[in-house]
Design a protein around this nucleic acid. Structure first.
Length: 304
DNA sequence: AAATGGACCAACCGCGTCTAG
DNA sequence: ACTAGACGCGGTTGGTCCATT
């Protein structure tokens, strides 16, 4: 907007496609100096571009951590799922797809997914359900989830993974999950750490309509930084809401104060499931996806 | 071979938000 | 508290490529 202001004898700024020479200049500058004020970048890198244009070129094309190439089916499903929750909040969706940019995802959505879904809408009931969800997303240019509730998930624990595969479309659960068969694990706690080396925990989930789904699976990394719901896609029709609150019942957890990790608020204690039981409940909520205090309260305890 | 139309994608534009002074 | 500049986001445009006629 004002990127040219303050520049004496305003040189004509270039527009349109970037030349390889311009790319080189920008890359060299960024590698040497890192990200700073974009209007300075343009000047100091010797580019006849406004800062905004430099920023866009770097973020969408030149950044070294970009993945590029075709979207995998997993990525596609994840985009569809996230779009059903977030609507057209491309930057938030991109934040959950490492190496992908909002622009890329937006283009992909507008060119491929929309079309596919239109096609799907004439096919199976399952596909129609997917289509419905996606259309909801399309209709909700602003999603059904208010801004205040989605802002928090930029480094979400829910669907972003380090190395595990992503099974996105099944999710969107509301309610409570109980660990049914926890693999043997050690739970170590200290004042600032709460580590659960636990993977592929079978669990039972209760959705917001109180429907019980058995043998659901979570994939959880050892620091609880990432948590995936690996529910079979056949059950997704039972769910229509974002994950609102989640309680994990963990075996033999110590009854100690818990921590608050980036986006997840953990309950203050691990409470025994039954009197004298070695099963403990550990409550956690994901604030970004909580729809209301009311729901939070409703879902904050394990049901039997 | 030329014209046409659709798909894809990079980049621009406008606007809202943030932040420093 | 106010303002100007910078930044970031989402919508849109325009260029290129490719398949079809």
């Amino acid at each position: 907007m004002s990127c040219t202001e303050g520049v004496p004898s305003k040189p004509k700024l270039r527009k349109g496609l970037w030349s390889p020479e311009e790319d080189d200049k920008l890359i060299n500058y960024m590698m040497k100096n890192g990200q700073g004020c974009w209007s300075d970048v343009a000047k100091q890198a010797g580019l006849q571009r406004c800062g905004k244009s430099c920023r866009l070129r770097w973020i969408n094309y030149l950044r070294p951590d970009l993945k590029r190439g075709a979207f995998s089916p997993q990525e596609e499903q994840l985009i569809i799922h996230l779009h059903s929750i977030l609507g057209n909040r491309w930057s938030q969706i991109a934040a959950r797809l490492p190496g992908r940019t909002d622009n890329e995802i937006k283009n992909f959505w507008n060119s491929c997914i929309k079309k596919k879904l239109k096609h799907l809408s004439n096919s199976t009931p399952h596909a129609q359900q997917q289509h419905k969800l996606i259309n909801n997303g399309i209709a909700n240019t602003k999603s059904a989830v208010p801004d205040s509730m989605t802002n928090d998930i930029s480094s979400s624990v829910v669907y972003q993974t380090r190395q595990e595969l992503i099974m996105p479309f099944c999710s969107s659960t509301g309610g409570i999950a109980q660990v049914d068969h926890a693999a043997p694990f050690a739970c170590s706690t200290s004042e600032n750490q709460f580590c659960i080396p636990l993977k592929y925990v079978n669990c039972m989930a209760v959705d917001s309509q109180e429907k019980v789904l058995e043998n659901q699976q979570f994939t959880i990394d050892r620091d609880f930084n990432n948590m995936l719901w690996n529910s079979p896609s056949t059950t997704h029709e039972s769910f229509s809401h974002a994950l609102q609150s989640l309680n994990l019942q963990v075996q033999a957890a110590q009854n100690k104060t818990s921590r608050s990790c980036d986006q997840v608020s953990w309950s203050n204690t691990c409470t025994p499931h039954d009197q004298g039981s070695t099963h403990y409940s550990l409550g956690c909520t994901i604030p970004a996806l909580v729809e209301s205090d009311h729901l939070l309260k409703e879902n904050s305890c394990i049901k039997n």
